[in-house]
């Protein structure tokens, strides 16, 4: 390498370091907060790596039986909303792609633009009339607002790129459209379904606004539960940070593991979403 190239290399690595460090430092600091006793968290200048790790912060959060309830609530809401969205969204994406009904995407666009609170006002009343408040059903239904458009959007894009020849051959051989979908299109679309699944899970898991309105004491999901901890434990940062990290850990893990799918899904959805 010439000196010029070496300088360029060093410059590049410096730029990479500068760009990635806000994310890395933030999450390291989050971990640090969650592993410190109150003495260390209240220290100034701040302590980055404590002498004694406060693993009990995690133990305390996990041991409280409410936390387990909220975790299960989150699993049920995200799981059901994602499963239902895949169930209706994957065939819909297929149908829209094959009919080339691109105008129908306007509805998805409206859904994308609409603030979440606008759905909440009428649906809140509806759930009240139906006597569903106090159960998890309202949250499962309203999370469909998040998951269904994601799944339809990604699946339209995916089915548009899969080749038609195989499907046409199967039709000529006498297969029904349903059989073609089930045995030809669906297996090919598996990577697309994986992308839709991952993004639906993440955005449903992270959702906060629907929960603060619709969740009661027993039906909180994790983001709402963590938010409610703030007001009660204003000064115990350790357990709070530990709870926050536990809530977001599954998502962070998924982000690093399924990085390629997430990038593909977000850029496809994003580029078309505009």
């Amino acid at each position: 390498m010439t000196p010029r190239q070496i300088i360029g290399r060093i410059g590049l690595w410096f730029a990479v370091f500068v760009i990635v460090s806000p994310a890395i430092l933030f999450f390291l600091w989050m971990a640090s907060l969650s592993l410190k006793f109150e003495v260390d968290n209240a220290a100034y200048p701040p302590v980055f790596i404590p002498e004694h790790f406060a693993w009990k912060n995690y133990a305390d959060v996990l041991a409280s039986n409410r936390f387990l309830t909220y975790f299960i609530n989150s699993l049920i809401v995200t799981g059901s909303a994602t499963a239902l969205a895949l169930l209706v969204g994957v065939p819909a994406g297929y149908g829209i792609a094959r009919m080339a009904a691109h105008k129908s995407a306007i509805v998805i666009l409206i859904a994308r633009i609409t603030p979440g609170l606008s759905y909440l006002i009428p649906l809140f009343l509806l759930f009240q009339w139906l006597g569903l408040l106090g159960t998890l059903v309202p949250q499962i239904i309203i999370h469909l607002v998040v998951t269904v458009p994601i799944v339809i959007w990604i699946m339209i894009g995916y089915f548009e790129t899969t080749p038609m020849e195989l499907e046409e051959a199967a039709l000529i051989d006498g297969a029904t459209r349903w059989q073609v979908f089930r045995h030809v299109a669906l297996p090919i679309a598996r990577p697309g379904i994986a992308v839709a699944f991952i993004l639906a899970v993440i955005f449903s898991w992270n959702n906060f606004v629907f929960g603060i309105v619709l969740a009661g004491r027993e039906t909180r999901t994790l983001p709402v539960a963590v938010y409610n901890m703030i007001s009660f434990d204003q000064l115990s940062w350790g357990p709070l940070a530990a709870a926050a990290l536990i809530v977001t850990f599954p998502v962070l893990l998924l982000t690093v593991l399924a990085q390629r799918q997430i990038v593909a899904g977000l850029t496809a959805g994003a580029v078309k979403g505009g």
Binding site: N206, P223, V226, V251
Partner: peptide, 9 residues
Amino acid sequence: MPMMATPVA
């Protein structure tokens, strides 16, 4: 990671 992490956390 920042955009995928749970906003409330």
